[in-house]
């Protein structure tokens, strides 16, 4: 019963680390998906005195994915009622050219600033409208959300590591006597600590599989999918291969680290 309690403590500690890790991954994916969504509705408007060459503009900054010319026809149609055809033609010739610039990904405020500067270096461009204010607000909100989740995950990991270090002391005490006896009969370090490594790897596997079942269950519930749909994104909540693989690596590495600390900390009794 006592042994089961010791195992459970490590399994729960590892499980909470895996839970924090996967939560952070989901939030990160959601933010990326949301950014991809935002980029479809975001563009920069450029005003130029002369017609711009598509390739030249694309070369000016690697964030630019597409340049779409904006026709002033809609505005001119409204003016045609009060103006003669000749004047309308003259107006068309004298009007600057408008372009909508689509970007490859959702830019940071710094990237927008750099992009604006690069575009303004082109002699014919007289105005760049990046809608920076509304962009900044959205971007900062996303950043804040990501930071909050990161801090939350980190604090959970710190608390769990503190719990594990306490667990480490219990394990150290528990395995010390056996390791000492084995040492008296000439057992090499690997043999003395084999039981310890085996137990900690088993605990890591148990914690990983529990996390696997937990996230697989959550993934299968409709509620989670609906929440993402409500904000207009589609997110891989739990990838049964890559996410589970990462969980296994993290849990096994942590438990091996824990066992190694015990082995290193073991001193032969005199």
């Amino acid at each position: 019963m006592k042994s089961l309690k010791n195992h459970l403590s490590l399994v729960i500690a590892l499980l909470s680390i895996l839970f924090s890790l996967q939560t952070f991954i989901i939030v990160d994916r959601s933010i990326d998906a949301y950014k991809a969504n935002l980029i479809n509705n975001y563009s920069i408007v450029v005003v130029s005195q002369k017609k711009l060459k598509n390739e030249t503009i694309k070369r000016s900054h690697n964030l630019i994915s597409e340049i779409i010319p904006l026709t002033p026809d809609n505005v001119i149609q409204r003016l045609e009622i009060d103006m003669s055809k000749k004047n309308v033609e003259l107006l068309k010739l004298s009007l600057p050219k408008f372009y909508k610039i689509k970007l490859k990904n959702y830019p940071s405020p710094k990237e927008i600033n750099d992009l604006t500067k690069s575009l303004l270096k082109t002699a014919t461009i007289i105005k760049v409208e990046s809608f920076a204010k509304s962009h900044d607000t959205t971007y900062k909100l996303l950043l804040l959300f990501k930071t909050v989740i990161f801090v939350f995950a980190c604090s959970m990991v710190i608390v769990t590591i503190l719990l594990i270090s306490k667990e480490l002391k219990i394990w150290q005490f528990k395995h010390h006597e056996r390791m000492n006896i084995m040492s008296m009969f000439g057992a090499p370090t690997w043999l003395r600590s084999a039981v310890l490594f085996r137990l900690s790897i088993v605990d890591a596997l148990v914690a990983s599989f529990l996390a696997f079942f937990l996230f697989s269950y959550l993934d299968s519930t409709k509620w989670i999918g609906e929440q993402f749909k409500n904000i207009g994104i589609e997110v891989v909540f739990f990838d049964k291969i890559t996410d589970f693989g990462l969980m296994l690596i993290v849990a096994i590495s942590l438990s091996i680290l824990l066992a190694s600390f015990i082995v290193i900390g073991h001193k032969e009794e005199v």
Binding site: R178, S183, M184, F185, G186
Partner: peptide, 16 residues
């Protein structure tokens, strides 16, 4: 050396 030595302790030192 210990592999070729047999030790008997007063307090037995058996693995519980």
């Amino acid at each position: 050396l210990r592999k070729h030595t047999g030790i008997v302790f007063q307090d037995y030192k058996l693995v519980k």
